[in-house]
Design a protein around this nucleic acid. Structure first.
Lengths: 358, 358
DNA sequence: AAAAACTCTGCATACGCATGCAAAACGCTT
DNA sequence: AAGCGTTTTGCATGCGTATGCAGAGTTTTT
């Protein structure tokens, strides 16, 4: 009963070999780039393969090569359009290199263990961690297991694992310069997840540069990168007896929520009554209804750096952690009062680049 | 040289077996739910496994069971927040069932072949097609290959493959009722991808019901579900000698773009000068700055129906195509002039439910 | 024309696990 | 204590492919 039954989708290399009158090895070599095979037999095999509807079984191939050509991407949440954007670009880049993207999402801080287990079981070739809140043990453990890991938009203290970030500290400084130059006197900060490196750096740079300008007061509330928590934070901050003239919100995703609260719950006019600046230059920030003045994180540059590092490590087997830091720009829009000088237009975008002497 | 080398992460069931003093079969059975194994040996194996850091190799398991526990999700684009939302929920549901999500994105209409090849090679257990524009041949071909497929938010004429949609035709009708009841006299429609089923149905229902109200003129422009194309379409439509009083935009993603054009390029006040309604009730539609009156597509209901159907088909092997159609609500916000009657408030949401007799 | 240097090809094996089958161990009953 | 049924165990095999090795075939060199 094994000779007459035609299995649905189970065409194997043996059947193709038989049909083409060659050995199974020949079939395998036909589908292995760079293998030693003559043009003639290759053609024969390809013809038989097409006729039988054969496709190499990636699972079996993975088993023997111990390479799955699968990259795991771990993202905490997709609510923030910056991440879908990143995800799409990562997919594109990986596909171009013949890799595939296994998505893990929705795992915030706790419960990272099951995720990790899954990753390991699937023998993924590499891992991209774009989750701002995943325990750093996980990344260490992966590194130990010999699986290349790249942190996206995040770093750890111990630099045992590669990362790609933007100059968050400089971004924070630049925003401080911008707001001070714009004549603001009092400032607020709505934080992301407090122990995330991006949050620490953005706040650090902001506060540092405010100090340079002689400002040592900064009202802080926490929004944990969540829309609703940011709204709560905004309500608190705007209800203060004297509310800050300018608020730096740790990312655009929250900044949108904060703007909505300011406008529709407090009736404030932006930027006349209140200036708001954000970070990421993500989708909604660019929409005219928000027009958020924001420091950009260049998605293309960051994603391609990520994929480059990851694939390099996979192919070379070299585990030396690399850190790529890319530069963003302060993109000036309408959500914050502008300084008299320093705003220039390049390629249709308004940027803030204070002259060095100031 | 094979006996002394310790491979990085290559702990196999044999090594665990040896360490625990049992056979490899015992190890396998320990990690196979429902297999025949005594509590005692199971405990021994688990202990050894933990000590050696053993994890079953999912690839090898897949090879033998011919079940990968991987579901492919094909999405054309993530720019529209509705889809990231869906994606996240699908990930959650699949993870809960022990399945994983292989993401394919960025492939619009053409070039579906490579995607298909990849899918087949990875022996995915099922496919969720949330791409509004992928050729229907693909879905047929998968069905032929015996891989369960569910179309998400989309159907085909030949109902050879399962699908989950919402009542798009009814939604279109309801919007027509709503706008007519709101006193609008002239209407426009900004279309999605023209041959997509959702677009056809929404437009069909809208136009049909306008006719019922004696309106037979409808200005149509196409936005192809893309933000920039929707902007172009909006500019055209709003530049018309007599512009429509109300515009139905085929989804919220485009409606946001249209609102921005209307407000910031044409200086129109919404809803005083122009009413806009959308579809999906996606993220930005709910943000106060847009507040789009929109027919909802319940993400949770749709995703869980999708996963249910898919897993059912995988487990039963039954290929009978199922079609689940879920109901949405017309959620009333501020982007369109409201009718005098029919708007009711339930659970803090304003809905439009015209009394049947009208 | 023979030898040398390549290029192809098939054979055999291994990757890590699941599972049918038969033997062994166990728990009860008579 | 022997017989029976039930659970547990190990053996052996197979899933579909890649690849080292040796032999066959082909081209180049002397």
């Amino acid at each position: 009963m094994d000779g007459g039954v035609i299995k649905r989708a189970g065409v194997t290399s043996f059947q193709v070999a038989e049909h083409a009158g060659v050995s199974q090895s020949a079939v395998s070599r036909t589908f292995t780039p760079g293998a030693s095979i003559s043009t003639k037999t290759r053609a024969k095999v390809l013809m038989s393969a097409k006729e039988l509807g054969y496709r190499p079984n990636a699972i079996a191939r993975s088993l023997i090569t111990s390479r799955s050509r699968i990259i795991a991407v771990v993202m905490a949440y997709l609510e923030n359009l910056f991440y879908p954007d990143v995800l799409e670009e990562l997919g594109r880049l990986l596909a171009a290199e013949g890799y595939h993207l296994l998505l893990f999402t929705g795992f915030m801080d706790r419960d990272s263990d099951p995720v990790f287990d899954q990753l390991m079981q699937y023998q993924v070739d590499g891992i991209i961690l774009a989750s701002t809140s995943l325990s750093s043990e996980l990344s260490d453990e992966c590194a130990t297991a010999g699986i290349p890991v790249v942190l996206f938009n995040r770093t750890t203290e111990r630099d045992s694992v590669s990362s790609v970030t933007s100059r968050n500290r400089e971004g924070g400084r630049l925003l401080a310069d911008f707001l001070v130059a714009g004549g603001h006197k009092s400032f607020g900060y709505i934080a992301g997840i407090e122990n995330s490196s991006t949050n620490r750096d953005r706040l650090g740079g902001f506060r540092e540069q405010l100090l340079v300008h002689g400002v040592d007061e900064l009202v802080i509330r926490t929004g944990n990168y969540s829309r609703v928590e940011a709204q709560v934070a905004a309500r608190e901050m705007l209800s203060l007896p004297v509310r800050p003239e300018a608020i730096f919100v740790a990312n655009d995703h929250m900044a949108v929520a904060v703007m909505d609260v300011a406008r529709y719950e407090f009736g404030l006019s932006i930027p006349d009554d209140l200036s708001i600046v954000g970070y990421d230059d993500a989708g909604p920030a660019r929409w005219p209804s928000y027009g958020i003045t924001s420091v950009s994180q260049p998605v293309n540059e960051m994603t391609s750096a990520t994929v480059d590092i990851l694939l390099d490590q996979i192919h070379s087997g070299d585990m030396e952690p690399l850190h790529r830091i890319v530069s963003g720009e302060l993109i000036v829009r309408s959500s914050a009062r502008q300084p008299a000088a320093g705003v220039i237009e390049i390629d249709g975008r308004c940027l803030y680049r204070p002259s060095p002497g100031t």
